[in-house]
Amino acid sequence: MELLEIKNLQHMFGGLKAISDLNIKVKPRMIYGVIGANGAGKTTLFNLITGIYRPTVGQILLEGKSLVGKQSYEISRLGVARTFQNLRLFNDLTVIENIHIGQIYTNRGRGKNRTTKDLPGEIRRLLELFGLDERATEKAGNLPYGMQRKLEIARALATDPKLLLLDEPAAGMNPKEVMGLVDLIKEVKNQYPDITIVLIEHQMKLVEGLCEYVSVMNFGQIIANGIVREVQSNPIVIKAYLGETEVG
């Protein structure tokens, strides 16, 4: 069964169709990429999955259960975590407090057969994994930009999600930092093998390095699906990104 299945999704902002007739299937434990030009509707898609917007038409299923109409916090407790394109950290709180807030609902309300986690141990593990242990008691707002990005991923992971949505995790990073992030996400996947990751990205380097499968969005629709290499040579995708080629 698919972990995430989106069927005939449509979303309108007034008269503007931000998403139309979108279908996606994400299998468990995969790293799935969503790429596309600015304004293609990628972030809107994430906002629909996490309940920040309500879709006009369509279904969003997590392990067969519908997420449509649920509040953001309910969706989070069902196991969907996300980061934001423009950082949304709790700036005036410390790094540890940021992660701790993510943990508050991990051991509750997700079925009784779920094993409870050792939360303080989990914080230490996340701090180490993301290289934040030395600045654990600093205010999140005082961290350098790259670390803030990492902290946001750590905070999302602290909710113990099944599905992790990363909205342009490499935005504003230089090429070296992007490669570091690729290794980091690989390491996260290594340590949390059960997690499924869906990421939105512009930088092909990151997508090539991580994703097994990508969907290309354009004007609210998916114009191509497939493995990265396949998609890159797809003429429709090239047209969407670069415009029509003129022969000559």
């Binding site: 953001s72 916090y73 989070s76 950290l89 407090e97 993510g102």
Partner: peptide, 24 residues
């Protein structure tokens, strides 16, 4: 307390707090 942290999370970033499972 955790409650205090939740309240401060609402102050700092309400949308993010909601997506972390907090019924703001």
């Amino acid at each position: 307390s955790d409650f205090g942290l939740k309240v401060k999370a609402v102050r700092e970033e309400e949308v993010a707090a909601r997506t972390l499972g907090l019924n703001t």
